[in-house]
Computed example of a mutant assay.
Amino acid sequence: MSAPSATAVPRPAVPLAGYLLAAAGAILFSAKGVLIKLAYGGSVDAITLLTLRMALSAPVFVTIGLVTYARARRRGAAAPAVGDLLKAIGVGLVGYWFASYTDFKGLETLSPQFERLILFTYPLFVVLFGAALFGLPFRRASLGAFAVSYAGLALIFLTDVGDQGAAVAVGVAWVLSSAVAFALYQLLAKPVIGRLGAPLFTSVAMSGAALGTGLQFVATRPLSDLAVSAPVFQAALAIAIGATVLPTYLMNAALSRISAQANAVIGTLSPVATLILAVLVLGETVTVADVVGTAMVVGGVGLFTLLDRRG
Rank of each mutant, 00 (worst) to 15 (best):
K190T: 13
A181W: 01
L269Q: 05
D290I: 11
Q186Y: 12
A24C: 14
L246E: 01
I239R: 02
S178I: 09
S5L: 13
I64W: 04
A167L: 12
A88G: 07
L49D: 02
L38I: 13
L277R: 01
S43M: 11
P12L: 12
T294L: 12
G152N: 09
L124S: 10
A295H: 07
L85R: 08
G144T: 11
I36K: 00
V60N: 00
A145S: 14
T248E: 03
L223M: 13
S57E: 04
L153Y: 03
V297P: 03
A39N: 04
G311Q: 03
L246M: 13
I118C: 02
A22F: 04
V272A: 14
L28M: 15
I118F: 02
V228D: 05
P15N: 06
R257E: 10
G18Q: 05
Q216P: 00
V204A: 04
S43I: 03
P247N: 06
A238F: 08
L38G: 07
V298M: 07
L158P: 04
S229Y: 02
E284H: 12
F114G: 02
L110E: 00
L20M: 11
A230L: 15
A169W: 07
L93H: 00
L107A: 00
S259M: 02
L16I: 14
S207C: 13
D290R: 05
L35M: 13
P10Y: 06
R73F: 06
M251R: 00
P222T: 10
D225L: 12
G90F: 10
G18P: 04
M206T: 11
M1A: 15
S203V: 11
G106S: 10
K87S: 13
